[in-house]
Design a protein around this nucleic acid. Structure first.
Length: 858
RNA sequence: GGGCGCAUGGCGCAGCGGUAGCGCGUUCCCUUGACAUGGGAGAGGUCACAGGUUCAAUCCCUGUUGCGCCCACCA
């Protein structure tokens, strides 16, 4: 900035000036030598590189930055890392789309190489945006979830889970996405409303009578392995335990009574097939029913050839085989129509009801899920609900009510966590299966020193590649991001650590900021990992951010064309203004994009700039003789009545802002600072102090008192605003306080948050000052109601206490010189007796009554 | 079906036991010296509805309605 007090406000120049300064002076650098209890560790969400950054990211990441900056300024050694979540299916999809290639049609190595290239570009875009936003992250901490370090950490985690008995491999039914051809976890299920049809289909009992089942999945009729009825169902009691023959295929199955059947639903009779839903799985396990593995990994009907054979008996094998043969190879969707047609031809559909059903689909691909038997690696969770709930309750949630979401999720868990994925771009599961004679199929586990390992290219210790079958599956991307805290801390446990000392300093984190829609994934899996590895919580606090909605309060969506690009907003306004907007949103609450709020933010910054012009005139080349306002008051350097008043107000503001920030209520912190700045400082104090600052009122000492006050008040205001407006605060700090800036390099430096103890407080002056301000207000009101200029002189004014107050001239006296100048009063008469109530210029205030004779408009 | 959140002036929000607040918008007025991207003043609300607790409820409790979200069911 130039010395010119008329300098133009140029946001672009300001935004270009500071990022390099901050970086080269290590303002945001974490210091590994500082003790744990003086640190504040953040587990920043690594943005998914496959997603473009939208205004919602700006919203939530900026909110975290407010907290990070406050913690740093308040003296904490802040660890504020940034990572990029680049492994997994999302990246594969992005790469396939951008490069118009297919993972399945090229070699695995080739595909992975392309993935690595593509994520580089995405990371650059992301980094640029975050830097421009002035996120105070320590850029030396950057990590990728697919990097060697992350893969090593992630594989260490898996080894630890296996060693502790929490990880197992099994051949069992699991949730399957036929489009992406991979197993998925319960958390990745998304319910979708669909129009479906409920068919009623008659089966034939041994005695020849009909038993009608209801189903929405007639294509799975072939996989029917039992007929389930409720034990209390009088109609059905006689069939229980007896044979029954399925429609069309006339396969022989048994009628079983089970409490889980709802006699009110459908026909009250359910066909259990392998597998239509989770209950089928439960029944299949409990009653040891046969497996008809009829849907393959791509969603095609398979394995139908043996129907009618001895192990899959039918009363009419030839017919069953004939239909099955036609069904074989058809996609489940086509198969459904095909079977319905045949059933109809044979009058085997007694009733069909159109229904709206919600179908479990894969979150990623949107495809209805199948339940397919396959080999998967699972983390045992269902026996640990109590432990996980306990950990959830140990964490402080901001806002508190978000905790409920995770508790509900844990309570309702139905599946262990499937962590294997039949995909390519992910962290490998570090296992092999032996082919050595005598130990065929034995699981061989990687050793620690091999990590990160790719079992496809590296054999286990003591084996050759020929002797093993490598595990081809990769991990669920959440299996890696669930140890994001540990990726940063460089350790899974004290024993299993790359750097145990660092791990002790950075784990658990103090804060996990994250969005609410990933509570059941990221937060949940992190809780799982920390609990199983170290019986710990992964973080002490979690700040849950809301969505950013469009200005009409609806979700932003590409399809609706209402998506706001952060770059456009930065162009239209500026970064600090966007941050002002983000600061209006409270944790857990959705915000909406609002030009109105942005305009207010920009005005606020302009006001800061303009007020600083005035302050600059007043305190340029001035250095107070004391270090703090409190000392200056103690020494008598600051003795002006309004000076003591504004300081007393400020002290409360500092206390409130500090308490709010400590409680993660950044918007309240901004709110109190903003009110103080605009109303108390600009509208009142600066106007009142002008007389002395222009040296038109008072002595040299009065001038010094005002300058000293302004010096400290303005600095404190900049400090209070610094977490929100890093650019403007730094710009003004460097200009107004050059020597302090030279010394501490930045207003954002560790420890530069204002201390309430440094600000003087005088309850009596505060109270009398408020009364004096009331005189100012009353005069303004009077002039305004007469449509007069505020500068209009008052020729004579009579002031008296309101009857309710005990006010005397002594209460007003000290404030009067500044006040007199501001309201342009030429002559004042004090009257101890209250003026009559019918006074035309009654200020309607509790403290004083006013009568005035105004001058003429000039 | 269960859970959570929200309902306050035209709009966006704060307050949360004791005479309703802020910002935007709106109306009127004020411009030579930080700022019209400004200053001053005003209008505008039975704090969703119904009960209850209390000397006193926007604020606490119960229920109802509406909106949003999460989860479950899904034959």
């Amino acid at each position: 900035m130039t010395d010119d007090t008329q300098a133009k406000l140029d946001f672009t120049a300001i935004e270009q000036r500071w990022p390099t300064h901050w970086e080269s002076n290590n303002i945001y650098r974490w210091d590994a030598s500082i003790a744990r209890d003086k640190s504040y560790v953040i587990d920043t969400p690594p943005p998914t590189v496959s997603g473009f950054l939208h205004i919602g990211h700006v919203y939530s990441y900026t909110q975290t930055d407010f907290i990070a900056r406050y913690q740093r300024m308040s003296g904490k050694n802040v660890f504020y890392p940034i990572g990029y979540d680049d492994n997994g299916l999302p990246t594969e999809r992005l790469v396939e789309k951008n490069r118009e290639i297919k993972a399945s049609s090229m070699s695995r190595e080739e595909f992975i190489a392309v993935c690595h290239e593509e994520i580089k570009t995405s990371e650059d875009v992301c980094r640029d945006l975050f830097k421009r936003l002035a996120l105070s992250v320590d850029w030396t901490t950057e990590y990728q979830t697919i990097s060697d370090h992350s893969r090593k950490t992630s594989q260490m985690s898996v080894l630890d889970l296996l060693a502790k008995g929490h990880l197992y491999r099994s051949l069992q039914p699991s949730l399957w996405d036929p489009t992406d051809r991979t197993a998925i976890a319960q958390a990745e299920i998304e319910e979708k409303e669909q129009q479906g049809v409920m068919y009623q289909i008659p089966f034939t009992a041994e005695d020849g009578s009909q038993v009608v089942i209801a189903t929405t999945r007639p294509e799975l009729l072939v996989a029917c392995v039992a007929v389930m009825v409720h034990p209390e169902d009088e109609r059905m009691k006689k069939f229980v335990g007896k044979k029954i023959y399925t429609a069309l295929y006339e396969a022989e199955v048994t009628v079983i009574a089970d409490e889980r059947v709802n006699p009110e639903k459908g026909t009250g009779v359910v066909m259990c097939c392998t597998f239509g839903d989770l209950t089928d799985v439960e029944w299949w396990k409990q009653y040891q029913l046969p497996l008809r593995d009829v849907v393959d990994k791509g969603g095609l009907m398979q394995n139908l050839g043996t129907i009618g054979d001895a192990e899959w008996p039918s009363r009419n094998p030839a017919r069953a085989k004939e239909i099955a043969a036609q069904l074989q190879g058809q996609h489940v969707r086509k198969a459904k129509k095909f079977i319905v047609d045949i059933l109809k031809e044979n009058n085997l559909i007694l009733k069909e009801d159109a229904i709206t059903q919600s179908v479990p689909c894969a979150e990623r691909s949107g495809t209805p899920l199948e339940i397919i038997v396959s080999h998967q690696w699972m983390v045992r969770l269902l026996d640990k609900k109590e432990l996980l709930l306990e950990k959830t309750r140990e964490i402080n949630w901001h806002p508190e009510y978000m905790r409920q979401r995770l508790e509900d999720w844990i309570i309702n868990l139905k599946w262990d966590w499937t962590i294997s994925r039949q995909r390519y771009f992910g962290v490998a599961l570090p296992f092999w299966y032996s082919k050595r004679p005598g130990e065929e199929g034995k699981i061989i586990v990687a050793t620690l020193d091999q990590l990160p390992v790719n079992p496809l290219v590296t054999p286990p210790k003591g084996y050759t590649m020929d002797e093993v079958e490598p595990e081809k599956d990769v991990m669920d991307t959440w299996a890696t991001s669930s140890v994001s805290t540990q990726i940063n801390s460089h350790g899974i446990t004290n024993e299993l650590a790359i750097d145990a000392e660092r791990h002790a300093k950075l784990f658990p984190a103090d804060l996990r900021p994250q969005a609410h829609e990933i509570i059941r994934t990221w937060a949940f899996y992190a809780v799982v990992k920390a609990a199983l590895h170290e019986n710990s919580v992964p973080f002490k606090n979690t700040a849950i951010s809301g969505w950013c909605l469009a200005s009409d309060g609806t979700k932003m969506a590409k399809s609706k064309g209402n998506v706001i690009r952060p770059e456009d907003v930065m162009e239209k306004y500026n970064v600090d203004t966007i941050r002002y907007w983000a600061a209006q949103g409270k944790l857990g609450r959705d915000g909406s994009y609002s030009d109105d709020v942005l305009k207010v933010g920009r005005r606020h910054l302009t006001k800061m700039w303009n007020a600083a012009r005035l302050v600059h005139i007043a305190i340029k080349d001035f250095t107070p003789s004391e270090k703090t306002a409190a000392d200056a008051v103690k020494n008598g350097t600051i003795n002006g009545a309004f000076d003591l008043w504004i300081l007393s107000k400020l002290k409360t503001v500092v206390e409130t802002a500090t308490a709010s920030f400590a409680d993660y209520e950044y918007s309240e912190a901004l709110n109190v600072a903003e009110k103080f700045f605009w109303a108390d400082l600009c509208d009142n104090y600066l106007e009142l102090a002008k007389g002395r600052l222009y040296r038109e009122v008072g002595s040299e000492a009065d001038y010094t008192s005002a300058r000293t006050t302004l010096y400290f008040v303005q600095k404190t205001v900049l400090q209070l605003f610094a977490p929100f407006f890093p650019y403007m605060a730094e710009e003004l700090f460097s200009e107004l306080y050059p020597s302090e800036f030279a010394e501490q390099k930045s207003i954002h430096a560790r420890g530069s948050w204002p201390k309430a103890a440094d600000v003087a407080y005088d309850a009596d002056v505060l109270k009398r000052g408020e009364a004096a301000i009331d005189i100012l207000s009353a005069v303004r009101k009077m002039k305004s109601s007469l449509n007069q200029s505020m500068r209009l002189p008052i020729l004579q004014m009579t002031l008296s206490p309101a009857p309710e107050t005990q006010s005397t001239w002594k209460d007003v006296e000290a404030f009067w010189p500044d006040l007199q100048k501001t309201i342009s009063c030429e002559k004042l008469d004090w009257q101890d007796q209250p003026l009559a109530n019918d006074n035309a210029y009654d200020g309607d205030k509790p403290f004083y009554r006013i009568q005035a004779v105004l001058g003429q408009k000039q």
